[in-house]
Simulated assay, not measured.
Amino acid sequence: MTQAERRHDRLAVRLSLIISRLVAGETLSVRKLAAEFGVSIRTLRRDFRERLMYLDLEYQSGYCRLRTAGSEMQMVPDVLIFAHRSGLAGLFPGLDRRLVNALLMCDEAPCVIPPASPASSPSEPLSFWRLVQAITDRRKVTLLADGQRCERLAPCRLLIHQQTWYLIAEHNGHIAVFTLDEIHLVQPLQESFRRNDNLCRLAEDPVFIQALPHFRFIQQSLLAFVPADNRPE
């Protein structure tokens, strides 16, 4: 990873943490943030002035807060967009503004969803974020997983099944499936790819999803009947 890429990763993590705290209603001290992230106060002010300029921020005596923080009604559209783009909307029958507002305004949790996955390792959040970006931007990646390195891999979908996140991708014209737990490194590339609509539809097929835990075994079993000269690299 180059120095520029490491700097970009640190910036992305810093901004995401700042945004999450602001949305939670916290009042942030610029000086304390600079010490926490190991950057100068000037850098933090640039973050707020240029990179977070779209937020409705209020500054006073070295502190910053979101003017609209705590307003559930203004959060409703964002919650709906997140739910639909993440695929969570289907968990709630008739998810709309009225339901989201009811959930945001209540003092207790009327809905219980068991934890979807075990605690993540420190490397997983960054890998997950990079894969989401690569899928969205349609950029190939170099992926390092247990026992193998995949160059110029085209990520298609991330989906969760039986408490495990899976990456569905295309590599050298073939389907590739990885669990997030076995992915150690995701290196974004500048090379773009054209989305494989057939693979995207397959990733949404319930039968395919049910077979994900056994995908690698099935693939290896099928390869055993293919002549060595015709096997994919």
Rank of each mutant, 00 (worst) to 15 (best):
residue 11 L to Y: 00
residue 77 P to Q: 05
residue 54 Y to F: 13
residue 35 A to L: 15
residue 89 A to T: 03
residue 161 H to V: 04
residue 158 L to E: 03
residue 178 F to E: 01
residue 179 T to G: 12
residue 192 S to F: 05
residue 230 N to E: 04
residue 185 L to W: 09
residue 149 R to L: 14
residue 165 W to G: 00
residue 172 N to G: 10
residue 216 R to N: 14
residue 63 Y to N: 04
residue 109 A to V: 10
residue 182 E to P: 08
residue 192 S to N: 10
residue 212 L to S: 03
residue 61 S to M: 08
residue 224 A to W: 10
residue 73 M to N: 05
residue 9 D to V: 03
residue 88 L to I: 08
residue 207 V to T: 13
residue 50 E to W: 10
residue 27 T to P: 00
residue 211 A to V: 02
residue 153 L to F: 07
residue 123 S to L: 06
residue 3 Q to D: 12
residue 83 A to N: 05
residue 146 D to I: 07
residue 57 L to D: 01
residue 142 T to F: 06
residue 15 L to N: 07
residue 211 A to E: 04
residue 126 L to S: 06
residue 84 H to E: 14
residue 116 A to T: 10
residue 69 A to T: 01
residue 30 V to T: 04
residue 225 F to C: 09
residue 113 I to Q: 12
residue 43 T to K: 02
residue 21 R to E: 02
residue 210 Q to N: 10
residue 164 T to C: 13
residue 2 T to C: 07
residue 53 M to K: 15
residue 94 G to C: 07
residue 185 L to E: 09
residue 205 D to C: 14
residue 49 R to V: 04
residue 96 D to Y: 06
residue 194 R to A: 09
residue 154 A to H: 01
residue 80 L to Y: 01
residue 97 R to F: 03
residue 159 L to K: 04
residue 50 E to L: 13
residue 41 I to G: 07
residue 78 D to Y: 10
residue 28 L to A: 01
residue 169 A to L: 05
residue 219 Q to V: 09
residue 217 F to L: 14
residue 219 Q to D: 13
residue 189 L to A: 06
residue 66 L to T: 00
residue 155 P to L: 06
residue 139 R to L: 15
residue 54 Y to A: 14
residue 167 L to G: 01
residue 142 T to G: 08
residue 125 P to L: 13
residue 133 Q to K: 13
residue 84 H to G: 04
residue 31 R to S: 10
residue 1 M to F: 06
